[in-house]
Deep mutational scan, measured.
Amino acid sequence: AVSDRLIGRKSVVMEAISPQNSGLVKVDGETWRATSGTVLDVGEEVSVKAIEGVKLVVEKLE
């Protein structure tokens, strides 16, 4: 599936994300709604860990 190619990809937070609120990330020039178990600020680099419905699950790059 097209979405499977996103797992493991680097992306950049475009709208802040917290455990309570989804935000936005940009992956390969496309904007996606995303969630995370931690707070992520605009501009942080993250990695796509999973896809749940139409949202990406991301975490901060170490």
Rank of each mutant, 00 (worst) to 15 (best):
A34R: 00
S11R: 00
D28H: 06
V54T: 14
V42Q: 07
S22D: 15
D41A: 13
I17D: 03
G8M: 02
E30L: 09
D41C: 14
Q20E: 12
V54W: 14
M14Y: 10
K60G: 05
T35I: 14
R33N: 08
K60V: 05
K10Q: 09
V39I: 13
V12W: 08
N21L: 11
K55E: 14
A34F: 00
T38L: 08
L56Y: 02
A34Y: 01
E45K: 09
I7W: 04
Q20G: 14
A1E: 12
R33E: 14
T35Q: 06
V12S: 05
E52D: 14
V27Y: 04
V48I: 14
V48R: 00
L56G: 00
V54R: 12
V46K: 00
E44F: 06
G37P: 11
E45N: 08
V46D: 02
V58A: 00
T38A: 11
S3Y: 13
E15Q: 13
K49S: 08
R9W: 09
T31N: 08
K55S: 15
A50M: 07
G53P: 03
I51V: 13
S3C: 13
V54F: 14
V25M: 02
G43H: 04
I17Y: 02
S47H: 12
E62L: 11
L40H: 12
M14W: 08
I7A: 04
E45Y: 13
G37Y: 13
V57G: 01
S47Q: 14
I17L: 04
S47W: 15
V54S: 14
T38S: 14
Q20V: 10
E59H: 07
E30P: 01
V27M: 09
S22G: 10
V27A: 04
S3Q: 10
P19E: 05
V42A: 07
E44I: 08
T31V: 14
G23W: 04
P19M: 05
S3K: 11
V58G: 01
E62C: 13
K55G: 10
A16V: 08
G53R: 01
K60L: 07
N21A: 12
I7H: 04
S18W: 06
K10C: 15
G43R: 02
E15K: 12
M14V: 15
A1S: 13
K55I: 15
V54K: 12
P19W: 04
L24A: 09
R9Q: 11
A34I: 00
V39S: 12
S36N: 02
W32T: 03
N21M: 12
A16K: 14
G37A: 14
V48C: 04
L40E: 00
R5M: 08
L56W: 00
K26G: 06
Q20W: 14
L61R: 07
L24M: 10
V42D: 02
R9E: 07
L40S: 00
E44H: 05
L61S: 08
G53N: 05
G53I: 03
E62Y: 13
V25Q: 00
V58F: 00
D28I: 05
K60R: 14
A50D: 07
L56D: 01
S47D: 06
L24H: 05
V39W: 14
A16G: 07
V48A: 01
D4F: 10
V27P: 02
S47K: 14
G37W: 13
L61T: 09
E52K: 09
R33I: 15
L40C: 15
E44G: 02
V58L: 03
V42H: 02
A1K: 12
W32P: 00
G23T: 00
R5Q: 09
D28A: 07
L24V: 10
G53H: 04
G43D: 05
E59C: 08
V12C: 11
K55F: 15
R9I: 08
V57S: 05
P19R: 04
A34N: 04
I7K: 05
K55M: 15
M14E: 07
R5H: 11
P19K: 04
R9V: 08
V2N: 13
I7L: 09
L6Y: 07
T31G: 03
W32Q: 02
R33G: 10
V57H: 07
M14G: 02
K26W: 14
S22C: 15
L6G: 02
E15A: 12
T38F: 10
G53K: 03
S36L: 02
A34Q: 02
K10Y: 12
N21R: 15
V46C: 15
G37K: 13
K55T: 15
W32N: 01
E30I: 11
